[in-house]
Simulated scan of single mutants.
Amino acid sequence: MTAAFLDWPQGTFASKLEKIDDKLKVTREVDGGLETIQIKMPAVISADLRLNEPRYATLPNIMKAKKKPIKKLTLSDLGVDTTPRIEVLSVEDPPTRQAGVVLADVDQLIVKLKEGGHI
C-alpha cells in the first residue's frame, strides 16, 4: 500500500540487496528458487529474515538504556497529519460454499457433472 500511495516501485521479501547506480537489484526466495528483480530508486523494500543478522543487546547496554530518560512527543510535535486517507465503502463476508458430496463411483460423478452443466 505504501508503494501504491507513493507511486514507487517495490521489492518484497528481499533476502539480498545490491545498489547499482540509481537502481536496486533485489533477490528474493520464491517457491522455485531465487528471483532477482531490478527496480529504480526511490523504492519501497520489505525484508526477509535472511537479509540481516540481528544484533543482540548485552546486559551492560540494557542497564544503561534503563537509566536514559524517555522524551515523550505528541503527533503535533512531529508535524504528523493523521486525517484518514482511505474510505471503507463496505465490508462483506464472502459467499458461503455448498457442502461437498461423497459419491460411490465414477458413474455417479459423471452424472453429477452432467447435471451441473460442467461437461
Rank of each mutant, 00 (worst) to 15 (best):
K64L: 13
K16W: 05
K71D: 12
L78M: 15
S46E: 10
M63G: 05
L75V: 08
R50P: 00
K40H: 11
F5K: 13
D77M: 07
A47G: 10
F5T: 04
G11W: 02
A3E: 03
L6E: 00
P9D: 07
P60G: 08
L59F: 15
R28W: 02
R55D: 09
I62F: 06
L24Q: 01
N52P: 00
K25M: 06
I37H: 08
A65M: 12
M63A: 15
I62L: 15
L34T: 12
E53V: 11
I62D: 02
S15P: 00
I20G: 00
M41F: 07
K66M: 14
E29Y: 02
D81R: 08
L34S: 12
L51Y: 04
L75C: 06
A43K: 07
A14F: 04
K66P: 00
I39N: 03
M41Q: 10
G33Q: 04
A14C: 08
G11P: 00
K16V: 03
M63E: 15
I70G: 12
K25R: 13
K72N: 14
L6Y: 00
M41A: 10
D7F: 00
P42V: 07
D22Q: 12
T58N: 09
T82C: 15
W8D: 03
L73E: 14
S76P: 00
M63D: 14
L6M: 02
D22W: 01
L34E: 14
D21M: 05
Q38Y: 03
V80Y: 13
G11T: 01
I39H: 06
D48A: 14
A43G: 03
T12G: 01
A4P: 00
S46W: 01
L24M: 09
G32N: 13
M63N: 15
L73G: 04
T74R: 11
V44F: 10
T12L: 10
L24F: 11
I62V: 13
L6C: 01
G79T: 02
L24C: 03
V80M: 14
A65Y: 06
T27D: 06
K40N: 15
V80H: 09
L73P: 01
L73D: 05
N61V: 05
G33N: 05
Y56C: 03
P60H: 05
G79C: 05
K25Q: 11
F5R: 13
K40T: 13
L78G: 07
N52I: 08
A43L: 04
E18W: 00
K71G: 07
L59K: 13
N61A: 12
E29I: 03
L17S: 03
R55M: 11
I37A: 06
D77I: 01
A43Q: 04
G33E: 06
N52M: 11
A14I: 02
P54W: 10
G11S: 05
V30L: 06
I39R: 03
S46H: 02
T36P: 01
V30Q: 07
S46Y: 02
K16S: 12
K64A: 15
V30H: 04
T27A: 11
L24W: 06
K16F: 10
I20R: 09
S15C: 13
L73W: 13
K72T: 15
P54C: 10
